[in-house]
Design a protein around this nucleic acid. Sequence first.
DNA 1: TTGCGTTACGACTCTCGTAAGGATG
DNA 2: CATCCTTACGAGAGTCGTAACGCAA
Lengths: 304, 304
Amino acid sequence: MNLNQFELLRVLQETDFNLSKAAEKMHVVQSAVSRQLQLLESELGTPVFERHGKRLLGLTPLGERVMQQVEQIHQAKKNIISMADDFRDNRNGTLHIATTHTQAKYLLPVPVQQFRQQYPDIKIYMVQSSPGNLIDLLHQHQADIAICTEKLAEDDRLILRPCYQWHHLAIVPKQHPLATAELSLKRLAVEPILTYSPGYTGRTAIEKAFNDQDLHPDIILAAADSDVIKTYVRLGLGVGIIAETAYEPEKDSDLVALDLSRLIPASVTKIAYLKQLYLPSYCRYFIDALLKEAQIKSGLAGLT
Amino acid sequence: MNLNQFELLRVLQETDFNLSKAAEKMHVVQSAVSRQLQLLESELGTPVFERHGKRLLGLTPLGERVMQQVEQIHQAKKNIISMADDFRDNRNGTLHIATTHTQAKYLLPVPVQQFRQQYPDIKIYMVQSSPGNLIDLLHQHQADIAICTEKLAEDDRLILRPCYQWHHLAIVPKQHPLATAELSLKRLAVEPILTYSPGYTGRTAIEKAFNDQDLHPDIILAAADSDVIKTYVRLGLGVGIIAETAYEPEKDSDLVALDLSRLIPASVTKIAYLKQLYLPSYCRYFIDALLKEAQIKSGLAGLT
DNA sequence: TTGCGTTACGACTCTCGTAAGGATG
DNA sequence: CATCCTTACGAGAGTCGTAACGCAA
């Protein structure tokens, strides 16, 4: 029983239980993996794979369970390497961030800049994806940390850190009647609405607010991207509902921002990462920088 | 990097970081472990142990972290072996139960008997200890499951399964004035009390009930063992407060049991085991038998 | 001097690669 | 008959044990 055999199990799962392909992936010949698998199974005393004659078809019930432990071992091994690399030289490495457009554009720029100053040699990969996919990216080890507002609940393999709390704004062109009118959800509901796609940036909070009053707003455009929403608001398509961070007073001076904090409940943007994953020191630095930035932003939001 | 090297790290920790003793424990010569350690550290690129000249003194900060992962790997490896053994032949093995006297005597007999019928070849080791120690026994892998009422909260490495809810009884000799009197905590508090040792069998619930009414009962005898309490109650030392399961109508016909369910809040006995530990099928069978028995007991308690 | 750890070297074991063989669709 | 897996055997890498050495209490 050794680490290579466990690695073989993992590779076999990734190659449709094909020994030849697994051998290729592991840079050894077929016969070698064949023998290693036999050795492992004979040591365990019972088969790990379902077989049809000689062909492997899938995992036995035992195999399923074993694979979970193998994943644990694989992760722990990776963590050890990651820790050692971190200790030896924490100025090299890569930071994989998975987030949504809104966070990437309006929350992350400052912390990322600070991060680059502190760790100029660390590469930053930023992946933009849908909130639902962010968690998958974490589990697939394609991202170290995920930052988003939605769909980050009830996964006990994740550590969730609340980052900052914010509200939505309504945006309209200056000449729009709503710019001066008394604001209510009922009033909003008769306007054509432009806001985030379902599952993005507090959209569920928006829907909930309307639904609670039995209102059904006419959402004529949904985008993952605040800028798209702004663009179509400028074209007069209707009222935009966006995150308060996404409103830039200077650039968006042609738009009027209307506070919705008393109409739509607050959303909380969170940082998530795998419980069992070791985060290198630069990664923890980034999280700290992000939390600090979020705190500043929250403070400002409170003042306005 | 291989499993033996990780095992070496574990053994070194158990032998005061003494290479010679570690070598002995691993049934190889000194020089072998010396070299393996060097290989590992050179692969990691940074030392795992603090050194004074050549002597090992302890773990480096890196070492501390690495050891956590090594423990994970060790546990996962043990789980794989355990799973395979379970699949190959689930009629052999050992069930290590850690519990307190009360549970061992009054809750476990029926499930244990059922268990022996189902798995006659499995040895049962039952360890009696204090509730505080039960959790340590789990973490030290000296017990598979722990059964008790107290101190089983807020350890996220454990899985806790509520087993059954029960109340305390007061017991007095037949001729005792309390046997016929109206019962209240205030009335009880003036009597000499005999009950469980602190931390045992719902003792905290008893204390809380009295403290909430600002009463300070005179506990003249505390024992881990219900039978000890009964014995001294029979000798007329005072009023005993025991778990309802510990009162046996036939054997204890010389004692009067007084329901305290409206005076002292219910206690919940729980089953605990390590989250990361694989439980063989016989172990799960025992837990199921125990839960079933507890349900029956609860049902009866509800009827009386 | 004793206890502990390292270094050097030969022996052994284990794993791999080559090559040939058997089964399956 | 092409794909996939197993078996046999020799070569090479890796690990161990013996033994000699270095260092500190």
